[in-house]
């Protein structure tokens, strides 16, 4: 079982873009550890002869035909954005 420590919890928070206080981090660490140990009980079941399940619904994927439709207007799409210009979303500069 993965032992949650501060480093892993911090990394997860960072990947999730969450800014957490020290006490929140500590609580989360405890919660995640207990969640994992709960889930770990599943390991007791022998699943050798069972195909991995990716979805619990016993249905087929629903398909749609390839039809292009008019969707949102540019004005409507950008209606709630904090900043836009020339029809673009505008965000602080990010260059990877």
């Amino acid at each position: 079982m993965i032992e949650f420590n501060k480093k892993i919890t911090l990394k997860l928070a960072k990947l999730s873009r969450l800014s957490l206080s020290n006490s929140q981090l500590e609580n989360l660490e405890k919660d995640l550890t207990s969640i994992l140990s709960f889930i770990d009980q599943l390991k007791e079941i022998n699943t050798d002869s069972i195909d991995p399940t990716s979805n619990s619904l016993d249905q087929n994927l629903i398909l749609r035909d390839d039809l292009a439709e008019d969707v949102l207007s540019n004005e409507k799409l950008l209606q709630n954005v904090p900043e836009s210009e020339l029809g673009f979303f505008v965000v602080p500069k990010v260059i990877e």
Binding site: E85, L86, V91, K93
Partner: peptide, 12 residues
């Protein structure tokens, strides 16, 4: 688009 403004990125 990173070249529209020195401090901003434009997204399409």
């Amino acid at each position: 688009l990173h070249d529209q403004d020195p401090n901003l990125t434009f997204v399409d």
